[in-house]
């Protein structure tokens, strides 16, 4: 019996150690980026163009580029994703074909992002002749985000009790009125959370934009959706692997990583807060 309890102590402490190790990984990454990146962050870094072959100056156009392209992604993916999810969850029958469609969409959420890059090159850049542009990249990232938004929205709709729909219909609501007045208000926080997380993922992606519109260096911001753009993730990639003076620009790379990481984390924390409040709200009503 003594042996047994020693084993238990050892075992549980190993598990505890594993959790700490995972947290340590996160801590190391954050510490490395924050400690070495915060030094270069100032208004010049955020609002200036790169200068002298990108060895000096800021990352303003890359921030704006990331915002532009994420905006295109938002405009495309969010309405499409939500509408598709509403159709699949509220209107489509639960037959074989629709189950197959749902399974395909779930699986597409797990497809490597570089595959979307390939599709973007073949279809948007070349097939549709959109060229290397904000539009091509935004649509490519939109496709990447679409399955994610569809799945999370469907999940949120599934969590709305069936009785909300029946109750509304029994009072003489049309199907759409029942969805609009009763189903969507209850699902909205889940939908918003999913959309924000989807966009945060899109904003941090590099592989899908690599060949669909992002540029090494531009002296101007994109004037329309048909122009190329600079983007934070790609800029970090360039500064850390492709630049002619890699060691010299390292501080800039750290700074870029810090800004990118902050953007993504802020989006995630917002999503978390919405979900957390919603969970409390849900608890209150049971």
């Amino acid at each position: 019996m003594r042996q047994n309890s020693l084993q238990q102590r050892l075992g549980l402490n190993t598990l505890r150690f594993f959790v700490l190790l995972v947290l340590l990984f996160l801590g190391i990454i954050l510490w490395e980026v924050f400690s070495k990146g915060s030094g270069v962050i100032n208004s010049g870094f955020l609002f200036d163009y790169p200068r002298k072959g990108m060895t000096l100056g800021g990352i303003f156009p890359t921030i704006m580029g990331t915002i532009f392209v994420t905006l295109v992604t938002t405009i495309f993916a969010i309405p499409m994703g939500i509408a598709t999810a509403i159709y699949l969850s509220e209107y489509a029958n639960d037959n074989g074909i629709n189950r197959l469609i749902r399974a395909s969409i779930r699986n597409l959420a797990g497809v490597p992002s570089i595959i979307y890059g390939l599709f973007g090159v073949a279809v948007f850049v070349q097939g549709m002749g959109l060229g290397s542009s904000v539009l091509s990249s935004g649509l490519t990232l939109g496709l990447l985000t679409l399955p994610y938004i569809i799945t999370t929205t469907e999940e949120a709709l599934k969590n709305v009790p069936h009785s909300y729909r029946e109750g509304a219909l029994a009072l003489g609501a049309t199907k759409w009125e029942a969805i609009w007045t009763n189903v969507l208000p209850s699902a909205v926080s889940g939908i918003v959370t999913g959309s924000i997380l989807g966009l945060s993922r899109a904003a941090g992606e590099t592989a899908p934009i690599l060949f669909t519109g992002v540029a090494f260096y531009l002296r101007y911001l994109p004037g329309s959706v048909y122009d190329s753009f600079m983007a934070m993730p790609y800029h970090l990639y360039i500064l850390s692997t492709q630049h002619h003076a890699i060691e010299e620009v390292r501080p800039l790379a750290y700074g870029t990583a810090l800004v990118l990481l902050s953007l993504v984390f802020v989006l995630n924390i917002i999503a978390f807060i919405i979900r957390y409040r919603y969970r409390n709200f849900n608890k209150a009503r049971i």
Partner: peptide, 14 residues
């Protein structure tokens, strides 16, 4: 459904 209303087994207030 406007003419024939329904009350369900479990109370389902919105």
């Amino acid at each position: 459904r406007r003419k024939i209303g329904m009350v369900f087994q479990k109370p389902n207030p919105f």
